Computed example of a mutant assay.
Amino acid sequence: MDDDHWKPPSVLLAVDLVILTLRGASLHVLLVERGVEPYLGALALPGGFLRDQGEDITAAARRELSEEAGLLDAPHLETLGVYGEPGRDPRGRVVSVAYLAIAPRLPEPVAGTDAAGACWKPVEQVLSAGVELAFDHRRILVDGVERARAKLEHSPLATAFCGDTFTISELQQVYEAVWGVKLDPRNFYRKVQSARGFIVAVGPTRRTENGRPARLFTAGPLHVLHPPMVRTAQAVCEDPEGPAA
């Protein structure tokens, strides 16, 4: 092609955010209700276009999270991927940089700018056939959830969703919520204990609902789980706390 006649394509750059947290016993995602076209009234991931050429991409993601959902103290954001297939946005050629955050105890969102509403929705409900998401946000959400599930396999992230001290059963509930499976308590206990430094036993035991004592733990110094907590869906057996102290 003759460089003298070449013109750069017209491409818009946007950001989208997959923000995940645990609420109750299930994994939730932050969604906004679009207040403008296209997809007026549809649910979508928070996000939007860069404000100008001088705005940093990550800064734009944090700005959109603040403007659309009122999350001023945004959790740590990591790059999830880049989505730029032609036709993904009816307004033109749009390339989006997606970010992921999974954090405990995130506040209720407050809608702003071009969002008519903002809320936490159970991931399982959103990914069911009954919930439509704008643009290609379903695909981005699926990728984000899978990344979050993989992070629990290889890192001690799950302990951040527990209290300062917790039981094996409470830690297992975090894994079940994020992975969306039921885990065999005995196998889970063995896997946790095999990753030395993952958790550390502390303090006195705690009485469970069935009256049995359960050993208390706190997060250990480990940053990478070895061996990893590989996902398995298994039948639930008795003794949900594993071996007693």
Rank of each mutant, 00 (worst) to 15 (best):
H5W: 07
P8D: 13
L12E: 15
L12K: 15
I19R: 04
R23L: 07
G24V: 02
G24S: 06
L30I: 04
L30R: 05
G35T: 07
G41Q: 13
A42Q: 11
A44I: 00
G47H: 07
D52L: 06
E55N: 08
D56I: 03
I57W: 06
T58S: 10
E64D: 04
L65N: 03
L65G: 03
S66E: 14
E67D: 10
G70N: 08
L71H: 04
D73R: 12
T79K: 14
G81D: 12
G81W: 11
V82D: 13
R88F: 00
R88Q: 15
P90N: 11
G92K: 05
G92N: 10
V95N: 12
S96Y: 08
L100E: 05
A101R: 00
V110M: 07
T113K: 09
A115M: 02
A116Q: 07
G117R: 03
V123S: 04
L127G: 05
L127F: 04
S128H: 09
V131M: 12
F135V: 12
D136T: 14
R138Y: 07
R139Q: 13
R139Y: 05
L141Y: 11
D143C: 12
A150L: 10
A150H: 14
C162L: 09
T167C: 03
E170N: 07
E170R: 14
V178S: 01
W179R: 03
W179L: 01
G180C: 03
K182G: 00
P185D: 09
N187T: 12
F188I: 06
F188K: 11
K191R: 15
K191W: 06
A195I: 07
G197Y: 04
F198Y: 15
F198P: 10
G203R: 06
R206P: 00
R206N: 09
R207Q: 14
R207Y: 01
G211A: 08
R215G: 04
G220A: 13
P227M: 03
M229I: 08
A233F: 00
C237D: 14
P240A: 05
P240D: 09
E241C: 12
G242T: 09
